[in-house]
Simulated scan of single mutants.
Amino acid sequence: MKIVILDTGCSNILSVKWAIKRIGHDSCITSNPDIVLGADKIILPGIGTTKTVMKNLSKNNLNNLIKLFKKPILGICLGMQIMGSYSEENEGIDTLRIIDTPVLLMNVKNLNLPHIGWNKIKFLSDNYLFKNIKDGSYFYFMHSYAMPINKYAIGQFCYGKNFTAVIQKNNFFGVQFHPERSSKAGSQLLKNFLEI
């Protein structure tokens, strides 16, 4: 199995690679479209800014390639957010429009932003991505922007109010949290994705 981690100019790429290695798989980090096209699985990582990621994807001619890819893709944190239609970050940026939902600055009243730390996930559907993971398991978050609950949400978290934690549309999967930093539950989720 050929696993590609897209080099989007973000800062958590190596931690994703090591997390995949820990569950017994090799992966390559690249922004080369020819290599990406040959992948069996793609992971879109993300700690950084929407503007930087979208700029790097465009520079490497990866925007349309991602949207047209037919095998499983997993977006992590910012990697999930760019699957939406638009982000409020940096006064507004168009993203990949894989799902027709914007990413908005979290309106959480008196709670701190960014939302950093462990939070539990409520499953909204019975999905293979959740195999051998208990509903209500904790995952590690680090973000200030999030998707509202939408028809592609298969998991949610609560931070002041409910937000989308996990999405699926066809072969596109996304998680707002960081499975590579989420202990056993995170490793199981990555393993599940790689077995889809």
Rank of each mutant, 00 (worst) to 15 (best):
Ala19Asp: 12
Gly174Cys: 10
Met142Asp: 11
His25Tyr: 10
Val103Ala: 01
Gln188His: 02
Ala153Arg: 02
Met142Lys: 03
Pro148Glu: 15
Pro72Glu: 03
Gly160Thr: 00
Asn170Gly: 06
Ile76Ser: 07
Ile121Val: 14
Asp126Gly: 15
Ala165Asn: 01
Lys51Val: 12
Ser182Pro: 02
Leu105Lys: 15
Ser144Gln: 00
Met1Glu: 12
Asn110Lys: 14
Ala185Met: 04
Arg97Glu: 08
Lys51Gly: 11
Leu190Tyr: 04
Tyr128Thr: 11
Ile149Arg: 05
Asn150Trp: 08
His143Phe: 13
Glu180His: 07
Leu57Lys: 02
Asn64Thr: 13
Asn119Tyr: 06
Leu111Gln: 14
Lys67Asn: 04
Ile154Pro: 00
Lys59Trp: 03
Gly160Phe: 00
Gln156Asn: 14
Lys120Ile: 05
Leu14Trp: 08
Ser85Lys: 13
Ile20Gly: 01
Asn60Ser: 13
Gln188Glu: 09
Lys184Met: 11
Leu57Gln: 04
Ala39Phe: 03
Cys10Val: 15
Ser15Asn: 15
Leu37Phe: 11
Phe173Gly: 04
Asn63Val: 13
Ala165Arg: 00
Gly24Pro: 11
Phe172Ala: 06
Ile149Val: 14
Val4Tyr: 01
His143Met: 09
Gly174Thr: 07
Asn63Leu: 14
Glu180Asn: 07
Ile42His: 11
Asn110Pro: 07
Lys134Val: 09
Leu113Val: 09
Lys41Asn: 09
Asp94Glu: 12
Met147Asp: 01
Ala165Gln: 01
Phe69Leu: 05
Ser58Tyr: 12
Phe173Arg: 02
Gly9Thr: 14
